[in-house]
Simulated scan of single mutants.
Amino acid sequence: MLVKLTDCIDINEVYEYLYSDEAGAVNTFLGTVRNHSKGKTVIKLEFEAYEPMALKELNLIAERAKQQWPIYKVAIIHVVGSKQPGEAVVITGVSSAHREASFEACRFLIDELKKTVPIWKKEYYEDSSVWVNAHP
């Protein structure tokens, strides 16, 4: 499994990890910073995580996906630090023999990450900033 927190997501690294000659499907979800939120212009986001617990949860989510679907490989990477609009902040991915399992497992990964992983973000606007739970 490729599970980590980092300051920068390398999409090629994720694809190279997930790729397999036996896989007929490689599915990824890439989350990026929007330039707006709650009617305000977003200047940047800052992400913080309680790293030991976040990594433990990410690994548990990956294991659950492998138990639930016939998938070969799993990747979950989330950034910490400051990111500008358009920059990648989270990627989930799986490889499997068939597309149905890869689509379902990939969606499961991001949905569970949003529910359980201790990651927080601070949204910076033109006139203010606010800490919010990155994953409601």
Results as ranks from 00 to 15, higher is better:
residue 38 K to N: 05
residue 78 H to C: 04
residue 86 G to P: 15
residue 104 E to C: 07
residue 24 G to S: 15
residue 8 C to Y: 06
residue 39 G to N: 10
residue 30 L to G: 11
residue 50 Y to F: 14
residue 55 L to E: 01
residue 11 I to V: 14
residue 122 K to H: 10
residue 26 V to G: 14
residue 83 K to Q: 11
residue 115 K to F: 07
residue 97 A to T: 06
residue 111 D to A: 04
residue 123 E to M: 07
residue 99 R to T: 02
residue 48 E to T: 00
residue 105 A to T: 03
residue 56 K to H: 14
residue 25 A to Q: 10
residue 20 S to W: 01
residue 51 E to M: 13
residue 21 D to F: 06
residue 44 K to S: 15
residue 125 Y to D: 12
residue 91 I to E: 14
residue 44 K to P: 13
residue 61 I to V: 05
residue 104 E to P: 15
residue 60 L to Y: 07
residue 101 A to Y: 09
residue 53 M to F: 11
residue 30 L to T: 07
residue 14 V to Y: 10
residue 102 S to D: 00
residue 8 C to Q: 09
residue 119 I to P: 03
residue 45 L to H: 01
residue 33 V to K: 11
residue 110 I to K: 15
residue 10 D to V: 02
residue 74 V to H: 01
residue 114 K to P: 00
residue 38 K to F: 04
residue 19 Y to A: 07
residue 51 E to T: 02
residue 28 T to K: 12
residue 128 S to H: 11
residue 124 Y to Q: 15
residue 2 L to R: 01
residue 87 E to H: 01
residue 111 D to K: 04
residue 65 A to L: 04
residue 76 I to L: 10
residue 11 I to C: 03
residue 90 V to W: 04
residue 126 E to P: 02
residue 20 S to I: 04
residue 41 T to H: 13
residue 59 N to R: 08
residue 87 E to S: 10
residue 122 K to Q: 08
residue 95 S to K: 03
